[in-house]
Write a protein that binds this DNA or RNA. Structure first.
Lengths: 348, 348
DNA sequence: TCTTAACACGAAAACGTTTGCGTGACTTTC
DNA sequence: GAAAGTCACGCAAACGTTTTCGTGTTAAGA
């Protein structure tokens, strides 16, 4: 087992100084062609590669970006990572990930761990717990230490940083407009509590669409699911809640749900109650994931372009890392990613 | 903006030497209680944290492990990551990920990038292209440089390293046995080409189950899907192939598919042809992902316990990293993760 | 009073790089 | 033949730690 070779070893072997080796390998004009050739050949033979850690220490930059997300087993977040990794790699950066599991303390710990020199900047989406507690000190602290942060999807106006968000409002509005256009008269909304910013915005989009079309919003048509319960596990409970909604409002002929799972479950419940999708009830979901695509009937959905979000976030972050502007008078951008309505079989 | 504080700055500020500060913060007995208190208080005030990069350089270990996977937008792989991240964090390690996108060259580049000091060891699953080309030099090279590697899922016997694999053979066998038990007489197999090791093993399990039950395997019942085409995109083509299979073999009453998507598509085709699942055709898939759970009817499937694989892989890797055994006489383990058959609505 | 030990701290090396500057040996120029 | 210039290389500092060893001061023991 040959350990990785270093400059020092090459220098000793070839009986020159370390600096000569370093310069030779970087093709400095200071070194004679003879020596350069000799050193380069030797380095190639032993497959020399500069040690990243030493470089990081010297250059005070790691060329690594940290991504903190609440959950990785989730189509949306893994797509964001894919996008971020894509542009990061293209620009010579690595990606290191931390999972908060929707927990405030894990988010803090993970950030501290990475902030101590391991990375140059953060891309992150806040955990639900953080959103609830509204405690943002760890973000502000890392930023005040000169480490740039780009937030995506779950953001909050109190924090001053670059942001990449989905146009939740218009995405929802367009979806509901589509239902109205398709002659739905009684459109239900299945959403999350308002502290989840995206849930709130999508709810507003729903209301606005109704409003602009002179349809009275009825609170009994709005179901807010308490998502502290993990409905991936307790599917039955979710189903029961939605069934309740349908039974109490027999004339529902359209459903807009703020995520795939709710939409899918709505379809399931409708079928169970003898309703045909899309003939009796039309359904539109949010987040164009694998479930929407492969459901039967396949689900019309608002596509968030998650990968594009990741790409944009990485781009913003790296741009900032490589810009020379005085951090004092920097400005923050908020990029809004437009949504698309992907029409499939669950609407007419 | 206050930059992160260093030992040197604390030393200068408090008019002591760097070594005194370092020792004081590590509570060395060499330093008087007075000085310790003073230094510790100051450090706390300025929120001092040792620089990870400097530590890595000094200790020649990064406490970071690299995970290379072909694709992250994939339930199985993201679950593996979750598992690995879980135990890694618990044991004080970070996780850095590289995506090969099923490409050989990206796999090589990514590994080289990380191997130069950024990480202490690898957890990886090979890309399809690597499996096809059978070029394993990059694995052997990094291992010969003393960097431990743990492979999972897609492994190959030529490479000597720790491995975590699914019991593909018995998983498939049990699934097919279940179909036989459920009175299926004509069981089709939808698989991948044999160079994908897992596809091969699952095919063997299928054949063995038939064999032990004295059912003659018929090649016309075996469909091998060329997966170099991305069927997530070209769903129609996949559907057409499977429809072909059904039409050519009208008496098919059971289907075993080596992944979720194939199984789901089989169900879709069956429904299209007027067959009821599970009454006319029973279907079992492989990989217990989100699709199986939320399909209608929900899919009976072989669960691979992906998260557990990730946990086990990280455990093996870190154990190796922290063991003191002479690398010359180390031994390699292969951990086989048993599968479970999760019975749902697609079987009787 | 002299030796010795305990105490509290500092100097320096090491991890692996990069780079500005110094320097010795030639070569050129007048 | 002396001054100046060029060439090819080495020295040393720096990045931020940890740790071994050395050292000056004080107190205790003989």
């Amino acid at each position: 087992m040959k350990r990785k070779i270093t400059l020092k070893q090459i220098a000793r072997e070839l009986d020159v100084s370390i600096s000569t080796v370093s310069k030779a390998l970087r093709n400095s004009a200071e070194i004679s062609d003879d020596t350069k050739q000799k050193i380069q050949a030797f380095a190639k033979l032993y497959n020399y590669r500069p040690n990243n850690i030493a470089l990081s220490l010297k250059n005070r930059r790691t060329n690594t970006i940290g991504i903190i997300i609440p959950e990785i087993v989730h189509h949306f977040f893994s797509e964001v990572i894919r996008g971020a990794e894509l542009v990061a790699n293209k620009r010579g950066y690595n990606v290191i990930i931390g999972l908060s599991n929707e927990s405030f303390s894990k988010e803090v710990i993970n950030m501290e761990m990475l902030a101590n020199g391991s990375i140059d900047g953060f891309i992150l989406s806040m955990s639900k717990e953080t959103l609830q507690q509204q405690d943002y000190h760890h973000f502000n602290e890392t930023m005040s230490q000169g480490m740039p942060v780009v937030m995506f999807d779950r953001v909050v106006s109190e924090i001053k940083c670059d942001k990449v968000i989905v146009d939740d409002f218009n995405g929802a509005k367009n979806a509901v407009e589509k239902l109205i256009e398709n002659k739905c008269k009684s459109i239900a909304l299945i959403s999350t509590p308002d502290y989840v910013s995206v849930g709130k915005l999508r709810t507003q989009g729903y209301l606005e669409a109704l409003n602009e079309n002179n349809i009275l919003a009825e609170s009994k048509l709005i179901l807010k699911i308490d998502d502290t319960v993990d409905y991936e596990v307790h599917l039955d409970a979710l189903e029961a809640e939605i069934e309740q909604l349908f039974k109490a409002n027999k004339k529902i002929d359209g459903v807009f749900a703020v995520n795939e799972l709710y939409a899918l479950t709505a379809m399931k419940v409708a079928r169970k109650l003898g309703l045909n999708v899309p003939n009796d009830v039309q359904v539109i979901g949010f987040t164009d994931g694998v479930l929407s695509k492969h459901a039967t009937p396949s689900l019309t959905t608002v596509s968030q372009h998650a990968q594009q979000m990741g790409e944009k976030a990485a781009q913003l972050l790296i741009d900032k890392l490589e810009s020379e502007v005085n951090p004092a008078d920097e400005e923050f951008h908020t990029v809004v990613i437009a949504t698309d309505l992907v029409e499939r079989e669950s609407t007419k």
